[in-house]
Design a binder for these strands. Structure first.
Lengths: 151, 151
DNA sequence: TAAATTGCAGATAAAATAGTCTTAATCTCT
DNA sequence: AGAGATTAAGACTATTTTATCTGCAATTTA
């Protein structure tokens, strides 16, 4: 469903939102706690900053920060920025001409499911995810990583 | 959502079911009508024959054929054989320990959607898809391919 | 101003997926 | 039995995705 790149981005966004701090959070902290390659995560987060979801700051106490309120960022926003909107718009069988006018055999069934997915993802705010994460004791990383969380 | 390989397999299965003929259908006919690389489609269909969904026959009037009745093959079966069941079972964020006991922040939301997807895919038979395909004038291939369909 | 820290950008490498080609095996027809 | 047709199987190539590495730019602190 989602690319690995996208899961990293969503995880990181939840992590940042769950921290609820007004200061910059270093990418190194995020990557080591979520067990994601630092340089790779850097690029993923750049996509989020370029999209205006986060801001970044270089230098000694730099890092990233949410650019918007967590309740104003939806899961759909995060996924769309990183993976694009194809999965929410395209034909399931990848047929270019498929649409309401000329539908493929799975068209109607998939549109129904897709619409529901979009509805849920759009209605799920980063704030809600971060809240759940906090309640769940920030269950984002692998079990072995949880043990040495610096949070 | 689906790999390209999987979309090829589903398309081919619908094509074969829609033909409703008791004879072998050559992979060459399928590949040229659906605009899929012949050799590649060969491999995809082998997965379906190995899984017992199709049978194949070599030689002059050989080809492939459904091994079961079209109403006994579900869309879920086709997808599971080719892409596996990970997408229907795994955590959306790919976290290995995620489950009912220890859930990730998106767990509940995704399980709900995933269950609905499985329900619909399981309830959609190849017979239904083939019927729709026939009604829709076999709208499987790209527009430019439709023009020269040999069907 | 110098040094340390941190994100940014581009090159490179590794792995997974998609696609192509060649040969072998099997079937039908004559 | 032999020739042609068709799937099976495996090697090989190409493309995309994922991951790593190196140097640079910006910021803070001393």
């Amino acid at each position: 469903m989602l690319s690995k790149t996208c899961t990293y981005g969503v995880q990181a966004a939840i992590y940042v939102a769950a921290r609820k701090c007004e200061d910059w959070i270093s990418i190194n902290e995020i990557s080591s706690n979520l067990n994601i390659s630092f340089h790779f995560l850097t690029k993923v987060l750049q996509q989020l900053t370029n999209a205006g979801i986060m801001t970044s700051q270089r230098g000694v106490h730099g890092g990233v920060m949410l650019a918007k309120r967590a309740e104003d960022v939806s899961l759909l926003d995060l996924i769309s920025v990183i993976d694009g909107t194809d999965v929410f718009e395209q034909c399931m069988l990848g047929l270019p001409g498929c649409g309401v006018a000329e539908a493929c055999p799975v068209h109607d069934r998939w549109v129904m499911l897709r619409t529901e997915i979009v509805r849920v993802f759009m209605g799920t705010s980063l704030e809600a995810l971060a809240h759940d994460a906090t309640m769940l004791n920030l269950r984002l990383a692998h079990p072995e990583v949880l043990a040495r969380m610096t949070l």
